[in-house]
Design a protein around this nucleic acid. Structure first.
Length: 262
DNA sequence: ATGCCGGATGTTATCCGA
């Protein structure tokens, strides 16, 4: 199975690039974040022509997550029980089963600044996610939580940690929230960078950050050992960050063999 | 070259992102 995750920063603005990328990369399952499309406006017909079924969760101007699959898409769950809101619940999580693998696409709240109510919301959201995953993991199926976690796991995952001294994405509490997910038994599937030593997945649009490779690793795949043990390759597709009209995030592409395969 | 912010709404400004 080829599994991918990509924060597209508007599926409408990115549609031509998304379709080209799907056709060229051929993922079986794709998690999307920041689709930014109102309910019912996801371009399901266009991706359907490439063989993908779509499960989408939207709330209008911002946020929005989806799962695309060409190997089956069942048991779709939108959000999760007890999901915190700001103040209303937002479209930040969707899950589906694809050929026996449980796949979550998540878009964690940004947090804005550490003294913002949005930061407390971010931590509460992580705690709710952890509880929801703990329930699902009891089932024992291979599972992957894919998406924009909006936390750099270590200082090596930020191009200049000193610039983030007073910022979100690197605070101990946010990194503890990631550790709490790993404590459920989930494994960080770290992709290979296509350039440089760091598997960054995000580069700000401004000031030539991409061409200077000043990025962050904030898009993650957390998988059960039953899935992670089958991973044969994982890479950041930085080619998708180049050229005209890219998202500010690059996709992660993972090839995984089913449990029990040679 | 990968190149100096972009997408959304709809306020031709403002919010959001990390």
């Amino acid at each position: 199975m080829r599994l991918a995750t990509w924060n597209v920063n508007s599926v409408k603005a990115r549609l031509p690039r998304l379709l080209d990328w799907l056709a060229g990369t051929g993922p079986d399952v794709v998690c999307l974040q920041e689709t930014k499309c109102p309910d019912g406006s996801f371009p399901a017909d266009e991706v359907g022509e490439l063989g993908y079924a779509v499960a989408s969760h939207s709330d209008g101007r911002w946020n929005g997550v989806a799962v695309l699959s060409r190997i089956g898409l069942t048991d779709v769950a939108v959000g999760f029980p007890g999901e915190p809101g700001f103040p209303q619940p937002e479209a930040r999580a969707i899950a589906a089963t694809c050929a026996g693998t449980r796949v979550w696409s998540i878009y964690v709240p940004n947090g804005r600044t550490p003294d913002s109510p949005h930061y407390r919301y971010k931590l509460d959201w992580f705690a709710g996610l952890r509880d929801a995953l703990a329930t699902e993991l009891g089932g024992g199926a291979p599972l992957a939580v894919c998406g924009d976690f909006n936390v750099a796991p270590t200082d090596a995952d930020v191009w200049d940690p000193s610039l983030f001294a007073e910022s979100t994405h690197v605070t101990p509490a946010e990194r503890q929230a990631l550790a709490d997910l790993r404590d459920l038994g989930l494994v960080d599937v770290v992709p290979t960078p296509m350039k440089g030593p760091h598997p960054y997945t995000y580069w700000d649009y401004r000031a030539g950050m991409f061409h200077q490779n000043k990025g962050m690793r904030i898009d993650l795949v957390y998988a059960t050992p039953s899935l992670a043990d089958g991973v044969r390759s994982a890479y950041v597709d930085r080619e998708a960050r180049k050229g005209k009209g890219p998202s500010d995030h690059a996709p992660i592409v993972i090839d995984v063999e089913p449990a029990g395969a040679a």
